[in-house]
């Protein structure tokens, strides 16, 4: 029925449940991986350019939020740029023009993402599968045109020179390292929330909907409501990522709401592995690295991105982390 379940169905029987590993078997390994990842991320700004790592973290959170829908509820949204970019605009505007502190700006950004997500969700959930993707894409294009024409977004210029401010009145975000650890903390909170959601009874119902929606309905679940809640949650987290991005780069622009951005987050998730917790993080890291590397060459970025898309869809639909999990001897 859904993308992720198809992937698992394609696999050999012994790996058939790879995307559905239960909490008990996976928890220890997940916790270990998470601890290692956190240690690496904590040390990263001393080895790499902090803004680069912050960009990776923002997009990793964005991709994780997107993955909550496609990987665990089986909903392909092609309009996530609207939440990311919409929240970036709201955060940037409230911090720069209204002079709010960064935490309030982020909160408003998250609320903007949630609000847009609610509208998109109510409309798009009325159709399934391929139509869902087309509707979310169309709605996000509408948000793009509105961003192009509305006064507060600054049209083609975007909102530039957004002040980073002082978080909670204590942490001065103009210091690169302070900003970095704030972004890392935001990412960890978002990731933990997703992890908790996936492993909650709510997450189990989402997976049931992904695997067989008519069956879930027949068991008495109001699947549309579950989908809507998942959609709003995903949009809010995408909003959190967008708002953070606006603070990091001190910029909110049309690039953030364009359909290419929606495509990019799909690619990150697909490349890393749909329905895996760490896949989107790996995918985001690879895509951001690749783009900053390609920017220095004469190779056209969209062509390379498109080619990766084609290769992923044709040859390895499980993504990098999905492939690793499928080949891991201990994975049940």
């Amino acid at each position: 029925m859904t993308a992720a379940s198809q992937t698992t169905n394609q696999a050999a029987p012994k790996t058939a449940t790879v995307a559905l590993r239960g909490p008990d078997a996976g928890t220890a390994r997940t916790a270990l991986l998470f601890a290692v990842g956190l240690a690496v991320a904590g040390a990263a700004p001393f080895a790499l350019y902090p803004v680069f790592v912050m960009k990776v973290l923002c997009f990793a959170l964005f991709a994780c939020a997107f993955n909550l829908l496609i990987g665990f509820a089986g909903l392909l949204s092609f309009g996530h740029a609207a939440f990311f970019g919409g929240a970036a605009y709201v955060t940037a505007h409230s911090v720069k023009v209204w002079g709010l502190p960064p935490e309030a700006g982020l909160l408003l950004g998250v609320l903007a993402g949630a609000f847009l997500g609610l509208i998109f969700g109510v409309i798009a959930i009325r159709r399934q599968g391929i139509y869902f993707a087309m509707i979310t894409l169309a709605l996000s294009q509408m948000v793009f045109f509105m961003a192009l024409q509305m006064k507060f977004t600054g049209g083609e210029d975007g909102i530039q020179g957004v002040p980073r401010g002082v978080l909670f009145g204590i942490f001065d975000l103009t210091q690169p390292l302070t900003m970095y650890y704030a972004v890392l903390a935001i990412f960890v909170v978002g990731f933990a929330l997703i992890w908790r959601t996936v492993h909650s009874p709510f997450g189990q119902v989402l997976k049931a909907i992904r695997e067989n929606e008519p069956r879930a309905i027949s068991l008495g679940y109001r699947t549309d409501r579950y989908k809507l809640v998942a959609f709003v949650l995903s949009a809010s987290l995408a909003g959190l990522a967008g708002g953070t991005k606006a603070l990091v780069f001190q910029l909110a622009s049309l690039t953030d709401v364009q359909w290419q951005m929606s495509g990019e987050v799909v690619l990150m998730t697909l490349l890393g592995g749909m329905g895996t917790l760490f896949g989107p993080v790996v995918g985001a890291g690879l895509v951001v690295t690749l783009e900053s590397y390609l920017a220095a060459t004469s190779l056209p970025v969209p062509v390379v991105i498109g080619a990766i898309f084609v290769v992923c869809v044709l040859l390895f639909r499980r993504g990098i982390v999905g492939e690793i999990l499928a080949r891991l001897p201990g994975a049940r």
Partner: peptide, 14 residues
């Protein structure tokens, strides 16, 4: 799943 066709053709469009 139909979604893969959409993703493939999206890549081709890019």
């Amino acid at each position: 799943d139909h979604l893969y066709g959409l993703l493939l053709t999206f890549g081709l469009a890019l």
